[in-house]
Simulated assay, not measured.
Amino acid sequence: MASPPQRTKRKPVPRHRPRNSGFSRTPPPREDGPQRIAKLLARAGVASRRDIERMIAEGRIALNGEKLTTPATLLTDLSGVTVDGKPVRPAAATRLFRFYKPQGTLTAARDPKGRATIYDKLPPGLPRVMPVGRLDFMTEGLLLLTNDGELKRRLELPRTAVVRQYRARAFGHVTQDQLDRLAEGITIEGIHYGSIIANLERRTSRNFWIELSLTEGKNREVRRVLAHLGLQVSRLIRTAYGPITLEGLEPGDADEVLQAELDAFRAALK
């Protein structure tokens, strides 16, 4: 079975950068005026806006002891707001982490079947974080984690068009011309997948590596598109999410994105 191309080794990246490593702990910028409670709670890292809307419908969120009935409630801050009876802490400074998700883990908080989740594999010491998007159970590689539900939402929105990069090890036969046609988009079983830039990287017998770049990230998109071309994917690695790369991490490792990198990433979002 073919192995990934050899790359220049870099100094290992620690699971956590030291407290004095240069990333900022300054408070997030203030937003004046009332805001929807769903946005405030997402910003505070309680959950995504969609999850917060569901929590309100379930009667789990209250203001001054009274259960809220709509996520459109406008507030200037979270004073008096409780979730499951517990006061909500003010929003902390936005933080973003890189995590090398190992194979055989779910991007979920828990699994009724008892399978391992990313939270079983995260190194100790991280704050409460949420994954940006998902990776399939057997897909490995870069998963971004944040304490800011609003940033999570922005990075996941299709209109933001953040480029995700993957490397797939596959078995079968495909030509570069076939891969080039993926740039026009493709419809499979009624589902349309947008432009994918794909290039053959290395071949050994009938095993080879393909590099792919896409912006949609639909469920099992890479696997389904390559299967449609008659390929069997034996390994799939996400190597980058926007400008943030996997470089320097091993499966199970995590570290924090420097504040300057995070600021530049946010500024570049549509």
Rank of each mutant, 00 (worst) to 15 (best):
L74H: 11
L75N: 09
R98G: 02
H228T: 09
K86R: 15
R25L: 11
F23N: 05
Q6N: 14
Y193T: 04
S3T: 15
L63M: 06
E53W: 13
R17E: 09
L258P: 11
L143R: 01
E66M: 07
E66P: 01
P71D: 10
A267I: 08
T107W: 00
R10M: 08
A168Q: 13
L126P: 01
L155G: 02
R49G: 06
R49E: 06
A267L: 09
R60H: 03
L75C: 07
V83Y: 10
G33K: 11
G22H: 08
A264K: 14
R95H: 12
Y100I: 01
P102H: 01
L229T: 08
L249S: 05
A168S: 08
A47R: 06
V81M: 10
P251H: 06
L226M: 09
F265E: 06
F97R: 00
E211S: 15
M1Q: 12
L226Y: 07
A109Q: 04
L179P: 02
L231A: 04
L226F: 15
V13R: 12
Q35H: 14
L122P: 00
K270W: 13
D111R: 01
D180P: 05
P243I: 02
E211W: 13
G114D: 00
E201F: 12
Y241M: 07
A47S: 14
R54I: 07
S79M: 13
R164N: 07
R220S: 10
D51E: 15
A161T: 12
I237A: 01
L258D: 14
R224V: 05
R235L: 05
T69W: 09
L182M: 08
R134E: 03
D120M: 00
S213T: 15
R30G: 06
L214G: 12
P112V: 06
A93W: 07
E150M: 04
G85P: 07
S21V: 07
R30Y: 11
L143F: 00
Q35D: 05
E247K: 13
T215I: 12
